[in-house]
Design a protein around this nucleic acid. Structure first.
Length: 511
RNA sequence: GGUCCGUUCGUCUAGGGGUUAGGACACCAGAUUUUCAUUCUGGUAACACGGGUUCGAUUCCCGUACGGACUACCA
């Protein structure tokens, strides 16, 4: 097998779509698996769609995800520059070569003329309205014009594009690593523009030239590129690069969770989950989009989830670190059908990865939240809280959001529990329990439990009848981690205060 | 419309000519628990359809349906 060199080649037109992250991931995994090279190339040949900050965003997203670039923008390498706008002259040279060899031609048609051509064909009932072998003869190009006319037009500064002269009726085959052999007749491929009138290449030319020059071994990209792959094959042929042609792998698309169709930002917004790795504000429209990172998704969990959308190892193992993924990954095991993006599974992965962390690591999340709230807490206490809460949370922020009561005494109490459980017995029990606690020098979970049992005996009230009320008094809510552990964490005095406060403020419902 | 690609539980998928069609998420039920959650146990649930080929097809072939991508001087 030849040296594995893969590239992720996004264009800086906005935030990086989550599907792009998966494409990058698969590229990266293949590179790592075979000790190859991961290249990042920026495809910024469309100047009208350029969005400032997008490139930085892509870089930061990949870094966050843990997808490391070996070569490319921001990193440099033997094939620099890696930004296509800076490689303009290179493409020009290759386009010229095709012109010289009669494999491409100049075209001077204006937008209106092209429009008129399509209209004409449409009216004539033609099934397609392409600029191709059948229509090029009636257009304004270097095939129909004389040499002197062409020269004159160019000299006069008439805008022109360079088009590929696609052969009329030829079978173009390509061996896709995921889909097998794909055959397309060249008559289905139109005379694609290679060089635009602004002097920039189109994707088709730039990608083929760069992949060749950068010695790319595998092109792993989304399925939306499959229809134009034959064109690329043709280009490799015309350049005489068939031997160096990379292998293609066209990935199944990421679909929206409900209904059908490509996963879009709209769908994600509607369902309330992010679609971009990081927060993003569009510089033009000022539209803000949330990111997976800011929503509390761990990169390793997101990647694990993403990896399994379209690929699986064929075993029953579900949790895969980047290392595991690298070891298990293979293009052969990528599926063909589009995968619906079900955020539930992503959340489950997040839970799994969060739980696997040590209390000390988790404590850092809680401490971060507390800092924002300007609440003091020792790392030890934070770790303890995380330890009792880790089984019930999905995101780092949940430690604070579901554990506020560790730091703030409740002032309002769950109405349902109060209505249902708060009664004379409760008042009696809690008063006695508070006294019981007072008698102790220190309260931990075990002694708190002992006190509950003792109070139960003394008052002859079964603890089961009053535990919910105790919880409400201590936390204000109806659910939470182990109550005795909670009491231990807030401490004896605080527990007594809270019970006293509840006793004073919750009215017994008159039966 | 045309070209290409696809189709196994609700979702991600394993499997593959003869299987009780497996797992995970989600869902439901039971057990545990002071609650919720966790955990454990169990459950509902799938080969799009029609023709071939074959002793036998969910698996191979062909159609149909449905879905998707592409159809720009966008990538």
């Amino acid at each position: 097998m030849r040296e594995v060199r893969v590239r992720f080649a996004p264009s800086p037109t906005g935030a990086l779509h989550i599907g792009g992250v998966r494409t990058a991931l698969y590229n990266y995994l293949l590179a790592r698996k075979h000790g190859g090279t991961m290249i990042l190339r920026i495809e910024d040949t469309d100047q009208t769609r350029y969005v400032p900050g997008a490139e930085e965003y892509i870089l930061e997203s990949l870094a966050w995800a843990g997808i490391q670039i070996d070569e490319g923008v921001s990193k440099g390498g033997p094939h620099a520059p890696y930004r296509q706008s800076e490689r303009k002259e290179i493409y020009k040279k290759y386009a010229q070569k095709l012109i010289d060899e009669g494999k491409a031609y100049y075209a001077f048609d204006t937008e209106q003329e092209l429009e008129a051509m399509r209209e004409r064909l449409k009216n004539a009932g033609s099934s397609d309205q392409q600029y191709s072998s059948s229509t090029r003869t009636s257009m304004s190009n270097s095939l129909t014009l004389s040499d002197s006319e062409v020269k004159q037009k160019i000299a006069a500064g008439t805008p022109y594009v360079i088009r590929l002269k696609v052969p009329a009726n030829e079978e173009v085959r390509l061996q896709d690593l995921i889909r097998g052999e794909v055959v397309v007749n060249s008559s289905q491929v139109d005379d694609k523009v290679l060089m635009k009138s602004d002097g920039m290449p189109t994707y088709h030319l730039a990608n083929v030239v760069d992949d060749y020059l950068m010695k790319i071994s595998h092109v792993i990209r989304g399925e939306e590129w499959l229809p134009s792959a034959p064109l690329h094959v043709l280009l490799y042929k015309f350049f005489g690069w068939e031997k160096e042609m990379p292998q293609f792998a066209h990935l199944p698309l990421l679909l929206k969770a409900d209904g059908n169709g490509k996963l879009s930002k709209r769908d994600a917004d509607k369902a309330g989950f992010p679609i971009f790795p990081l927060n993003w504000t569009d510089p033009k429209s000022k539209e803000f989009s949330t990111g997976f990172r800011e929503n509390g998704y761990l990169p390793e969990a997101l990647l694990n989830f993403l990896a399994f959308l379209g690929w699986n190892p064929g075993t029953e193992q579900e949790i895969f670190s980047m290392k595991d993924l690298t070891a298990a990954f293979s293009l052969e095991r990528i599926g063909k059908a589009g995968a619906k993006f079900d955020i539930h599974k992503a959340q489950w992965y997040n839970q799994q990865y969060l739980r696997a962390k040590s209390d000390e690591e988790l404590a850092r999340y809680l401490l971060t939240s507390l800092e924002k709230e300007k609440i003091q807490c020792t790392p030890e206490k934070a770790a303890k809280i995380c330890s009792v809460m880790k089984e019930r949370i999905t995101f780092p922020k949940d430690f604070w959001e579901q554990g506020k009561f560790f730091f703030q005494a409740p002032v309002v109490f769950d109405e349902q529990v109060v209505a249902k459980k708060w009664n004379e017995d409760v008042v009696r029990f809690l008063s006695a329990f508070a006294s019981e606690l007072k008698a102790l020098t220190q309260v931990d979970a075990a002694s708190a439990k002992a006190s509950v049992d003792k109070t139960s005996q003394v008052t002859s009230i079964p603890s089961g009848k009053v535990m919910q009320a105790l919880r409400v008094a201590i936390t204000g809510g109806a659910s939470g981690p182990d109550l005795m552990a909670t009491i231990e964490i807030i401490g004896k005095d605080e527990a007594i205060n809270r019970i006293t406060f509840a006793l004073e403020n919750i009215k017994v419902k008159v039966a």
